[in-house]
Design a protein around this nucleic acid. Sequence first.
DNA 1: ACTATCCGATGCAAAAAACGCAACGGGTAT
DNA 2: ATACCCGTTGCGTTTTTTGCATCGGATAGT
Lengths: 300, 300
Amino acid sequence: MKYLRTFELIEAVVRAGSIRKAAEDTNLTASALNRRIQSFESEFGWPVFERLPRGMRLNPAGELLMQHIRAQKTDLARVQSQVADLSGQRRGHVSVACSQALLPYFLPRQIAIYRAAHPGVTFTVNVRDRAQAERDLAAFSSDLALVFEPVHLVEFEVLFAMPQQVHAVFSRGSPLADKTELRLSDCLRHKLVLPSAAYGVRHLLELAAMRRGQTLTPALETESFELIRHYVTREQAVGFQIPIGLNASAQSGIAHRPLSDRDMPPGRLLLGQMKGRTLPVASAKFAQQLTAAMAEKSGI
Amino acid sequence: MKYLRTFELIEAVVRAGSIRKAAEDTNLTASALNRRIQSFESEFGWPVFERLPRGMRLNPAGELLMQHIRAQKTDLARVQSQVADLSGQRRGHVSVACSQALLPYFLPRQIAIYRAAHPGVTFTVNVRDRAQAERDLAAFSSDLALVFEPVHLVEFEVLFAMPQQVHAVFSRGSPLADKTELRLSDCLRHKLVLPSAAYGVRHLLELAAMRRGQTLTPALETESFELIRHYVTREQAVGFQIPIGLNASAQSGIAHRPLSDRDMPPGRLLLGQMKGRTLPVASAKFAQQLTAAMAEKSGI
DNA sequence: ACTATCCGATGCAAAAAACGCAACGGGTAT
DNA sequence: ATACCCGTTGCGTTTTTTGCATCGGATAGT
């Protein structure tokens, strides 16, 4: 879009940190770019950048402006998507920020279903911890977020909430497999394989342990849910995950069972968007599909 | 703003209904304007106007685009207002759509108070019936609406609700002045001076009359609240208004008293904005002031 | 303390974009 | 049939934007 070229140039300067570098990225000369920035600032009424000896940085007014620019860009995309929709075409792009738990089974299946119906729609999936996922929404870099136990919940509009009890994951030979009800205290007697602090499962475990006056000392702490699943087959240890990322029979050698809800209430897997935003058609439709799928899973 | 000149031109064409007329309004030639529209449409990806033998009209895609244009323009104004605010200046403009009842006392007083504190802020007050006030919000032509008993309430975000019992208005000599409790049936024995159907007071009266199996046959029906107030001093008649537009001792010759709430529950005077919109600083602050003033009035 | 380097800003000429003028073809109302 | 109003297009002119060369200032490294 030519008419918002100025905005793109401002974004480029923000990214590059200086006019000269941004000029290379945008195939312009520094002088031309400089004058566009200056003339915009004079129209806008206030300077938008701080001039530092090493380059340019947004001032507070500029931060406000950048919000506007991002909002305006995504809103235009939404309009184009709606127009494409009413023209009978179903095109568009969906960007999702999600927790790792959705990667193995849930999201690939849902995306495949959606794309089977609408091959013109493309997807971006960004793996984020729960805090970062919310920031992505606010920065318009993702349309939807699927996160377990989000942190802030400001600017986050919940589209669907799905209860998920934390499951213990262990090798098939583990003694934990025999209990009728799985208590947290049983698990804590084993070696622990825990996700790092940024994740909701860890957060819930810490809370539950604190209530019992205990502390968690993991033998292995990792950001990779995949590593957790595989590690418990190598050492007699217990990991923790939510069931949406687990599959009864898929991975040979591991088993999983829910923790007793006497020890820990179920967490919530939330589908959400940025508060007040109107999503592009494709994203809105995909959110509907996810909601239906989550509702069905919860019902069973 | 130069960079959104294209948007202004599109708006001008929409307003004028043809390129040639819009060209005059914008001090351009038809050819130049035509080419800007065409090049925009080609960038945008779809035609935005229908070409009719008598001019141009928005097609459905154009309607969607216009929403975007309006939203984007007001959002930019909001950003500028916020920037002005953080620069220590308090500039800006507030536009209010309101019912007639607010005109004699409430709004002039509130605007004067606000402007005494912030002389740089200017105001637009548009008198609208309750349906039109809500449409104004949705079209971004007003920031705030002050309406009695709004109609739709979709896209309308309530900022404050103030109960207002309908008052009967009559000349000081009227027999109604002597009753201890003013019943609707007492009023209906007199000649009626009623606001027209678009107004909330009339709506409430119709509802109350219907509950009693009666119909309202006004001697005088008008859109002017001012006329109602003055007419009751000329003929032995009774009018109806909400107290915020009345003042105990201001207008000589008229008196007013609330209807019994056995006949009619109080209506609600609502301060609202468009749902999900972030208001410019000046408008947001003024809304805060109005909220405080309404809360104080309700408290007494 | 000094120099090399990187920065944004500006004067001036060239290139690109926007514009105005005139004219064309098509539809409508009289 | 005619007059009128519409959007559209070719072409020469005007305005705006860009590239090049250069200046002055602040910093980092020596």
